[in-house]
Amino acid sequence: MDHFPTNWGRPRNDAFDAYATHPIHQRPYNGPKDTFADGVQRTQSGWSITNPFVPSDLVYRQPIVTGSSVLAIKYKDGVMMAADNLASYGSLARFKDVQRLHQVGNYTVIGAGGDMSDFQYIQYILEELSIEEISAQDGHELGPVEIHEYMSQVMYARRSKMNPLWNSLLIAGFKDGKRFLSFVDLLGTTYTASTLATGYGAYIAQPLLRKAVEGKEDIITEEEARKILEDSMRVLFYRDARSLNKFQIATISSAGVSISDSMQLDTTWSFAEDIRGYGAQTQ
């Protein structure tokens, strides 16, 4: 039992601040002390510039330009994924026309939250991989399963070098009549489920998605799936301060991959004036 009220109600993994809203040296750490992380001792090649007592390969890295949530669900004919077009610089809405959904090969879409420069590097290595595969001309094509396996190995290898690619990735695809949907993050953690969400989406959208989709994966139509994602993106726009009302949806089915143009969310704000502390107050 933790007897300090100021620690109560905080996320248990407070070390991971997906949006870097606190400068690192001010961020309170209230989580459990991880003896394993502290026990890691590695040979060092140099020392930190700012603190000569800290070895350079242990310098804490942090994401700079970040994307927020990515959402994805399975439906009757395939998989659908959504992400907004915002890349933030801390709390500044810095880039408002960024594509966070990226097609790989003919069967797969990869969506990214976290550091956008790391994501661009991922796009680059996947492009190289695709070129290598095509050059072989052996009739083999990379499907979502292969892309997932490749990305999970890259992410795990980078975390093991203590130099992670600071992203949460969703990988969705459709190949050989099979839907595929998976998650990979900066630690190399992987999992699959019929609904997935990264960043704040995991807290805000995931419960909505599960309620709408679980057990109905083979019933939900494309239109219904699009509505579920749109509604969730709207909730995220209302509640996640690092989100934007401009987003894209990727559809992957037997018809192939299609990533939509950017769409505007229709939102209502008339209720705001009724909320105390939000609009102009009458008392």
Partner: peptide
């Protein structure tokens, strides 16, 4: 309350390569 001494000497923390998955 932010700790003022830590502001003067930014304390660096290593990337934590572990988590617990229950």
């Amino acid at each position: 309350m932010p700790d003022m001494t830590s502001l003067a000497h930014p304390q660096q923390r290593a990337f934590n390569p572990y988590t617990e998955n229950g």
